[in-house]
Design a protein around this nucleic acid. Structure first.
Length: 207
DNA sequence: CAATAGATCATCT
DNA sequence: GATGATCTATTGC
């Protein structure tokens, strides 16, 4: 299930094996964007990994979504145009990366929950201070931001190009997608908005 | 393996 | 003043 081509393990080779995604291609409803992002690759600071787990967060009706409480300093980017980063601090300790969905004026975003590490593994090990197998480097929302050195400083960044970018494969790998309820929330706990590569070893939690 | 405690702070009430 | 889209270490079977 991990990446088909194991010869692509350097940042530059991975960059060449992928292509940019236009900013307006991100402008989908959050559940659709969450599926679209599965299998795409995040690049930042000499490290990169493939997204294998996402969660969609909706608008006013979705009480688990930060944007359901309205437009504030923290949530304003979620109400903006798609393809930008919403990064926030959770539990005073970890940062979580979201991709803004939908058109400007309509709130919605996608939490990136797990990556398969592909390039820059030694750097990821150093940032994470992790001693286990590679699958444990970025298999959680707080872990992957550490591994790729993504912080609240990236709040509002565009993701189609620039230092923090998401690209898709020129030869798209084929994976089976499974859908489950979201993890770690206390509202709308049974909405089927978590999207995963079925059986992938780098998930934050199996199914 | 499962359950639980503790770390730590920006945001919102 | 309470809470939380988490993670790690530790305890107990």
């Amino acid at each position: 299930m991990p990446t088909s081509d194991k010869s692509i393990s350097t940042y530059s080779a991975l960059w060449r094996a992928t292509a940019p995604i236009s900013l307006n291609a991100f402008a989908l409803p959050a559940p659709e964007l969450a599926q679209f992002l599965l299998g795409t690759v995040i690049f930042h600071a000499e490290t990169a990994g493939m997204i294998v787990e996402t969660e969609a967060y909706l608008g006013a009706d979705d009480l688990a979504a930060h944007s359901s409480r309205g437009h504030t300093d923290r949530t304003k980017v979620i109400f903006g145009p798609a393809g930008h980063a919403y990064v926030y601090l959770i539990y005073g300790m970890y940062e979580c990366l979201n991709v803004v969905a939908d058109v400007a004026g309509t709130p919605g975003c996608v939490l990136i929950r797990a990556l398969e590490p592909i390039a820059g593994l030694p750097m990821m090990y150093q940032r994470r201070r992790w001693l286990g197998p590679p699958k444990g480097l970025a298999n959680g929302p707080g872990k992957l931001t550490r591994a790729l050195a993504i912080t609240r400083g990236h709040y509002g960044c565009r993701l189609d190009k620039g230092p923090l970018s998401i690209r898709h494969w020129r030869n798209k790998p084929d994976f089976k997608i499974a859908i489950t309820p979201r993890i770690g929330i206390s509202q709308c706990t049974d909405w089927p908005l978590r999207f995963i590569f079925d059986g992938h070893p780098c998930l934050s939690r199996p199914l």
